[in-house]
Design a binder for these strands. Structure first.
Lengths: 385, 385
DNA sequence: ATGAAAGCGCTAACAA
DNA sequence: TTGTTAGCGCTTTCAT
């Protein structure tokens, strides 16, 4: 069997009138059938569908959009990176959009793009969309005309952050990074670490700032020192560079990295510098990338609920699109999912002349130099906690 | 300054007639200006643009599509995973599409999706596209009606593989995996390994089969043993499982993994089993994921030229869309980019009673049990070769 | 339960 | 160089 029209390249595509003629009904009736409207007898419906099938009829979307004023599509603005977070979110958005019956248009904003998010939104509006999703916005460059509020005619859903967009409806989803960062930080404190260092993401990203804020709020709330922040660019390379610095400071016993890639680079640098993970330094990542359970040591991290966020957000966006007057549905925070693996442990015993109370269990504490490779308490499949 | 129309929520959007009236010209002239047609005096053009600006005029794309028969958009079928390869390719496609001035529509095919690629293409055709990109196709499930040829009215570009699609123009790009796999395999042979094992990707993927074929062809051409293939699912987890098996076979001294994630899992399993990488076993990955240079040991891998492939492919696709009669532009293979890092080395000395000629340099050969962590000859930034 | 007529906002083909 | 006239293939509104 062959899908598709099967027409030769040159024959014009059949229109609804053609179907109507063949089925012996009016063109409007064909329209009724294809729109699942009521008041079509079962018999007529069947005849119409048969005629359509026979002709290989396909509704013309441009005509539909023109006549109805609705494009039945949602536009998404993404960052154009294959980074695990943004890419996962985009895939989640695609699924969620398709589930709602809308089509998806995609425009990237590369970092440093002169037109920025405003330009991408503009382009989406030109293309024609009924609603817009802005995924993981970042601050724009100074000096472009996009560092100001952007006014749009359609509902907008911002994923992962607030934003300076003015729209008839402005929705937010997935802005729970703050809470997740708190959980990560608290995990380390509960293991007995005196404080937690933070390897932050680029601060132009709202997501990076959220995580930093959550971390800082936790330390402050517990009355702990807030160490200086190191800023990376999400890459393992930047994590590695940061790790070389942090390895020199013996006070560093726990680091919360703003994503897994940086955590992996960080761990590598620490290991090279002779600081064992987790015996000497504990590391928590963020994202739960697929390799996280298989690097050495398996990474303790916070899993991001991309699909849930996208689904929930899109349901609300579509609701706003279809009910312009109804109140926006309030968002609900997804649960935080800390995945404890082997990169975190209680801090090493304090130097003999200091008296820092160390809570929690002691590390297995093999003496230095006898471990090759590190103990790997959790070598198997990801242990989900 | 504020971008966007600035109209209230209820005022109807201005049409080209409104602009025409305000500028004191005919509606057709407005159309001429916005389509950059010739034969418009500079003065008229200016007046039209001013009027448009003042009104916040935006062309209605549905009307354009309806009148012209062209949607000015390209549809892409992707796999819906955040795997580095497919995600990078999608980002490359987005950039490339935007560079051509077309809009992008995206539909995912999840593995196991009943409708499969045919369903995704169908949905794109319903939405209305002038051309279609199929990215990284995989074999469909048996029993669906999509395991047969699919007929389409618009040009189709298949990225990374041949495919069973019937279209007026069928283009291919990025099908050089075979050659890249050869290069990876040859690298290992040249280091002196007697043969190379292969940790393959899921064989339903064309990309996985290509890599396997390239590997096998190289071994065959050189008259080497072709060891049994282990098949993974692209995940580090599957690489880890495969590694546990391979670690038991002392004949394994070199493994070519079909992607980096599996290579990372593989290395972890080997290390846990006491088989050092690269001293005892060399491993080559595929993709050059961002963390590849920062795992332990830094991974030798083949970088995939996603952007180049997407750009080149799209240029040809758009050419086919706009010149239906012209011959399709032939494709050109991008150069292979082997990135040599620290996961590959000459094989260990053969057991005393065997006589296998070992070419190439000897490994640094530290005696067993003294390495914690492994030497890390290439600890710094990625060494590009 | 079905049909007829009138646009939706553009581009295309042809004047002028 | 500019304007006029017809549609593009649907959905909408109003009849029947």
């Amino acid at each position: 069997m062959t899908r598709g029209t099967g027409r030769g390249k040159s024959a014009p595509a059949p229109r609804s009138v053609d179907v109507a003629r063949l089925a012996g009904v009016s063109q409007k009736t064909v329209s009724r059938v294809f729109n699942d409207e009521q008041y079509v007898s079962a018999d007529v419906r069947r005849r119409v569908l048969e005629a359509a099938e026979q002709l290989g009829y396909r509704r013309n979307n441009a005509a539909r959009a023109l006549a109805s004023g609705r494009t039945r599509s949602i536009g998404v603005v993404t960052l154009g990176t294959a980074l695990y977070g943004p890419a996962s979110l985009l895939m989640g958005v695609e699924r969620a959009v398709r589930d709602t019956g809308y089509a998806l248009r995609v425009v990237n904003t590369m970092e440093g793009d002169p037109a920025g998010i405003a330009g991408a939104v503009d382009s989406l509006l030109d293309q024609g969309v009924d609603g817009i999703v802005i995924s993981e916005p970042i601050d724009e460059e100074e000096g472009t005309d996009s560092d100001v509020s952007l006014r749009v005619d359609v509902p907008v859903l911002v994923l992962g952050a607030p934003s300076a967009v003015a729209a008839p409806t402005l929705l937010t989803a997935g802005d729970g990074a703050d809470l997740m960062a708190r959980t990560a930080t608290e995990h380390l404190l509960e293991l007995g670490h005196v404080t937690v260092h933070h390897l932050a993401g680029p601060q132009r990203w709202f997501a990076a700032r959220d995580r930093l804020n959550g971390w800082r709020a936790t330390l402050t709330a517990r009355g702990r020192d807030v160490p200086q922040v190191t800023e990376g660019d999400w890459s393992a390379a930047s994590g590695y560079r940061a790790g070389r610095e942090l390895a020199r400071d013996p006070a560093v016993t726990a680091v919360f990295a703003a994503n897994d890639d940086m955590a992996i680079g960080l761990i590598r640098a620490l290991t090279e510098a002779g600081r064992r993970v987790p015996e000497d330094v504990s590391v928590v990542g963020f994202d739960d990338v697929p390799v996280a359970a298989y690097v050495t040591p398996p990474l303790t991290t916070v899993r991001q609920p991309f699909d849930t966020v996208a689904q929930e957000g899109l349901k609300r966006l579509v609701h706003a699109v279809e009910n312009p007057d109804a109140d926006p549905v309030p968002s609900s925070d997804p649960p935080v999912d800390l995945v404890v693996r082997a990169s975190t442990a209680p801090p090493p015993p304090p130097p003999p002349n200091r008296t820092t109370p160390a809570r929690g269990r002691r590390a297995p504490s093999g003496s230095r130099g006898d471990t090759s490779p590190p103990p790997l308490p959790d070598g198997g499949p990801p242990s989900h906690h």
